[in-house]
């Protein structure tokens, strides 16, 4: 039950992009084409899930025993950046095909605030390692759903007669807000059943 609740929460109800406004930079920057959106989605799902595991483990086994919770933000930034670099080295050596598929997106993720965001949210909810990982996966899936939908919409803009001043980021932000409005309907979904 908790699994379903966290999954639905991450994908529909508390979608990182539409409801929590996290991870917007890569969302706006890499959604112009479906290929890049798919590539980034793969990388985000991979990194966000395992970064949540690492951060949650770090919290549980190092920060809490040493009473260093006030260092959480700084510690997480270091842990996540270090983790992404390690993954990159590891993949390059062992799974070159995956490394090639993820390409430039893997290092880019270090700058994805949603990865840090989900780790901090996990700590605030005291999810622990297992549920923290699930929450990371759910958040990453939600983020991917958002960017894939958005890439589909944005690919059509090449053929549209968009007013010049609005081209690019302004229009992307307006469109994101309209999408968020559409996701509003999922708020409090299953609230009565799951609570």
């Amino acid at each position: 039950m908790k699994f379903i609740s966290i999954m639905l929460g991450g994908i529909l109800i508390q979608n990182f992009v539409f409801m929590q406004y996290l991870g917007l930079c890569p969302f706006l920057g890499l959604s112009e084409q479906m290929d890049t959106a798919l590539g980034m989605s793969g990388a985000v799902i991979f990194v966000m899930t395992f970064a949540s595991t690492v951060a949650a483990a770090f919290e549980q086994f190092i920060l809490v025993p040493l009473h260093l919770e006030y260092m959480r933000t700084i510690a997480y930034i270091l842990v996540i950046a270090g983790f992404v670099q390690l993954v990159e080295i590891f993949l390059k050596k062992t799974v070159p095909s995956l490394y090639k598929a993820l390409g430039i997106y893997l290092p880019l993720i270090t700058t994805n605030c949603a990865v840090l965001g989900v780790a901090l949210l996990n700590a605030r909810q005291s999810y622990g390692v297992l549920w923290g990982t699930v929450n990371g996966l759910a958040g990453a899936l939600g983020w991917s759903v958002a960017i894939i939908i958005f890439a589909g919409i944005r690919e059509r803009w090449k053929f549209m007669n968009i007013p010049g001043t609005l081209k690019g980021f302004p229009l992307a932000l307006v469109a994101t807000s309209l999408m968020a409005l559409s996701f509003q309907g999922f708020s409090r979904l299953f609230a009565s059943v799951l609570k």
Binding site: W157, M160, N161, I162
Partner: peptide, 9 residues
């Protein structure tokens, strides 16, 4: 904003 009729999503 998206270019009028036919461009809205």
């Amino acid at each position: 904003i998206f270019g009028g009729l036919g461009s809205n999503f």
